[in-house]
Design a protein around this nucleic acid. Structure first.
Lengths: 147, 147
DNA sequence: CTGGATCCTAAAGGATACTG
DNA sequence: CAGTATCCTTTAGGATCCAG
């Protein structure tokens, strides 16, 4: 995610709210997956690659570097002949992890509801042939207008 | 974020893990900001636009639609002459919000540490002129090799 | 006021080949 | 094994203009 929104030259507004901070670690398809995968102890590169299901070698490397840079992962390299590298969460990241599991748990509880909401929204918005023409995209509830 | 990782034609693996579910809502610069901004009650479009600081009209609309589609936001339109639309969190989203605040709180507590970690990483990796040439990018800790 | 439509740039991400 | 480097496609996102 690009820092700098429109980036007014001269006036640096960054670091204003901590929200942006979180987003930078949490956003992106892979960061969370990596943290979760690395949470159960030291994990090797290839283990992560296999555990994460769909991540490319490149993206894994990039995200690992970023997480290491931000102090969320420690990278330990053993100078053995086939090189061996292990990643672990820092204390800071373990704390973050506990919040993350809350998120995942939430997703598990509501994934059905979300899928249902999507289906409802989509069928309401794009029926192959609108039988009686409902121009309104969302079935927006219209309470009695007060003003 | 694109659904479909490599997308094996014929074998649809999607919806496998709930992690992907969360990521789709949490990832992206704006989703969290919008949920947080909308958490304190019904909020109008323009209020969100001003509250979020840096979001474009387009992105706000897009994200609102997505969140509505996923059942996280309800959109209520009042058919007044200058149209008025209010967005609120659904029950599901309010629950999510409580986890989100945990995340934000975490970010507040550790933003200093993160900034420090970044600075340390960057100075270790890219000094303008490496005085004695350290070829290793990260100062990787090297414990005694066991094998 | 609340968007939708369009155009364009930048960043994310994937595939693959190569290396210490 | 654990990456790097390169090339390429897709997506996110911004700017702007227009409309009910």
């Amino acid at each position: 995610m690009s820092r700098s929104h429109t980036h007014v030259p001269g006036e640096v507004i960054e670091q204003a709210c901590p929200l942006v901070e979180v987003l930078d670690h949490v956003a992106g398809k892979w960061s969370i997956s990596i943290l979760v995968a690395a949470a159960r102890g030291p994990v090797r590169f290839t283990e992560l690659e296999r555990a994460i299901e769909g991540i490319s070698r490149r993206m894994l490397t990039l995200n690992l570097r970023r997480l290491e840079r931000d102090g969320l992962l420690t990278r330990t390299v053993y100078p053995t002949v086939p090189p061996k590298v292990e990643y672990s969460l820092t204390a800071m990241a373990q704390e973050l992890y506990s919040y993350l599991t809350g998120l995942v748990e939430w997703a598990e509880r509501h994934s059905g509801a979300i899928a249902h909401a999507r289906a409802a929204y989509d069928t309401a918005a794009a029926p192959a042939d609108p039988p009686r023409s409902q121009p309104e995209r969302g079935r927006a509830q219209v309470p009695a207008s007060s003003p």
